[in-house]
Write a protein that binds this DNA or RNA. Structure first.
Ligand code: FES
Ligand code: FES
Lengths: 155, 155
DNA sequence: GTAAAGTTGACTAAATTACTCGGGTATGAG
DNA sequence: CTCATACCCGAGTAATTTAGTCAACTTTAC
């Protein structure tokens, strides 16, 4: 499978949404501030997340994004898939033709690895992740720092 | 972890070596012919495999490469590691600093994924792979075709 | 109306990957 | 001895992918 910064950013951003759920729409500007991901880049990512039906968008002032389903029902695999290419560790993308039309020696091996990764990532939901102490602590630190930056910027 | 064409080629080439073990050194030209990997590229890969103590090289006429250890004792993970960067799915390479010196929300998740992939790949040896019917069939096809090409080229 | 926010698509810069090339060096067969 | 075989090595490059920017547009609350 393809695990790029893009996929990692998407997951991070979705975790941020999950952590701040239930308080109305979250703007990308907030996510950008807390997670240090450029706003324009987030726009790109959320365009895909929206098309994949993982988030709802609310336009206009007071708008933003929110999770379309509860965090308990969105798996990490879905998020990665939404912004990346299909999950596969093969060179041939599952077609079995990477040796000039024929299947190569190691094809089966990579297929199995793809399965493993997919199984792992689809067994974990956004909620599983944000329940962890570790993540809670990181989130708390980010909240504090984000408010401090507000003070510096606007106070 | 980083799973590039390079890693896949390395595994394929090592499988070829394993399949033709016990008949003296295998030249890269043979591997290249059977697996359709460019000779220059193979040289690059085997340079690393040799430095990682996975293969022995024999120079001069009649020379080539052979596995340094039996195929039952070389894991896929070792091969991938030998040609790629360290196995990690994190952005920070395990340092926990990808958010301007601080750990990011999803760090722990990617660490766990890295573990999973590593566990999987290190649990499979070259021998496990070449024992499979599927792989045996592909190998047989390659042998036949390779001999046919000999005839065309030299006969 | 106007400012906040999402929407879109094209564009660019940087990084990585996947190679190639050209010249080495060791060595065994004849 | 010699020379063809095969490994050895590092620089260089072309292609692809990734990461990120920019500018113009739409919707909507106040
Ligand atoms: S990876 Fe599928 S044929 Fe080689
Ligand atoms: S992936 Fe390690 S800190 Fe973000």
């Amino acid at each position: 499978m393809k695990l790029s910064t893009k996929g990692r950013y998407a997951v991070t951003a979705m975790l941020d949404l999950a952590l701040h759920a239930g308080k109305g729409p979250i703007t990308l500007a907030e996510v950008s501030g807390r997670q240090h991901i450029s706003l324009s880049y987030l726009e790109q990512l959320f365009s895909r997340l929206r098309k994949a039906n993982l988030v709802d968008s609310i336009r206009g002032p007071g708008g933003g994004y929110e999770l379309k389903r509860p965090a308990t029902q969105i798996s990490i695999a879905e998020v990665v898939l939404a912004v990346n290419e299909p999950i596969t560790a093969t060179r041939c993308n599952g077609k079995g033709d990477c040796q000039g039309g024929d299947v190569c020696l190691s094809h089966q091996l990579w297929s199995e690895l793809s399965d493993q990764i997919y199984q792992f990532l689809s067994g974990i939901t956004l909620d599983h992740v944000i329940q962890r102490d570790f993540v809670q602590q990181v989130a708390e630190r980010q909240n504090v720092r984000f408010r401090e930056e507000d003070v510096i910027a606007f106070g």
